[in-house]
């Protein structure tokens, strides 16, 4: 034990091995929310899965734009090009959102995440904000690439420029991507399991759409609660007050409710 006593009595700085103590006092305030959101954003893209998903989306968009440029001499309206860039994002980006949440459980990184920031609702909101950030960048990219491709078709393929978009189509394209992402994040928080969340995200709304079309009793409910249907008017033109209300109701059911329940659940779940 005498050796221990000698070590303990030695001056603090003489201890080898350990790095120098960090200068300054220890923080008395928590991790700023934006820093947390920034880290969550980085976590979405720094894994092999995340990176390949983004590369995959880029490849699908490139393929779709190539087809449009080659087909009929590129003679398509801007709306078509926009759809070609938006659709792959709307379909595949939600998987990025799902993985951002479920990988914390499947890869068990929640252990680290929730010990570095024990205020779990903040982590959940940071993930939601990061997903939104990805979505906004995706929408802007979709517009930029769609416009560039259409411009290229006009300039180099001699296509007629047709830049007309329905008044709410921009909103529709953005909503399509952003609401899909939020819905996916909500489902992922509720289920915390990658296959379950992916299947639920893709199958449930489609199944509900089918029920709404095939079962007469469910028709009125579907008009208000089928997100696929309530979003349609956004792409074609202006919405009536009732259509806005229907859109709002369906967003509440498919996006806000899963998110709220998911965040509540994450706060309580035991992290294994």
């Amino acid at each position: 034990m005498s050796a221990t006593t000698v070590t303990a009595a030695a001056p603090d700085r003489a201890v080898p091995g350990l790095p120098e103590p960090l200068p300054g006092p220890r923080p008395a305030s928590g991790v700023p929310f934006l820093r947390l959101a920034g880290v969550e954003l980085r976590k979405m893209l720094d894994t092999r899965a995340g990176r390949w998903l983004v590369i995959g989306i880029g490849a699908v968009i490139a393929a779709a734009l190539t087809v449009l440029l080659v087909q009929d001499g590129g003679e398509h309206p801007f709306a078509d090009y926009l759809q070609a860039t938006t659709m792959p994002m709307a379909l595949l980006l939600p998987v990025v959102g799902i993985l951002a949440v479920t990988s914390e459980w499947s890869q068990r990184t929640a252990l680290v995440t929730f010990t570095l920031e024990p205020r779990r609702p903040r982590v959940a909101w940071a993930k939601t904000l990061a997903a939104l950030g990805v979505g906004v960048v995706a929408v802007l990219t979709a517009f930029a690439f769609g416009a560039a491709a259409h411009g290229a078709a006009v300039a180099f393929r001699g296509a007629t420029g047709d830049w007309e978009l329905a008044g709410t189509a921009v909103l529709g394209a953005a909503g399509y991507v952003l609401l899909g992402l939020l819905q996916a994040v909500g489902f992922a928080m509720l289920l915390r399991n990658t296959p379950a969340a992916v299947v639920a995200y893709f199958a449930l709304p489609t199944a509900w759409s089918l029920v709404g079309q095939l079962v007469p009793q469910a028709r009125t409910a579907a008009e208000w609660l089928d997100l696929n249907r309530t979003m349609e008017p956004l792409f074609t033109g202006s919405l009536t007050g009732e259509q806005w209300a229907q859109l709002g109701t369906s967003v509440g059911l498919w996006v806000a409710l899963p998110l709220a329940l998911g965040i509540w659940w994450i706060t309580r779940a035991e992290v294994k």
Binding site: L22, R26, G30, Q107, R108, L111, V112, L116
Partner: peptide, 16 residues
Amino acid sequence: PNPGRHVGLLLDASAQ
């Protein structure tokens, strides 16, 4: 506040 600056945890090395 900012617990990583006060406490270092290694609860499961495989949880990465």
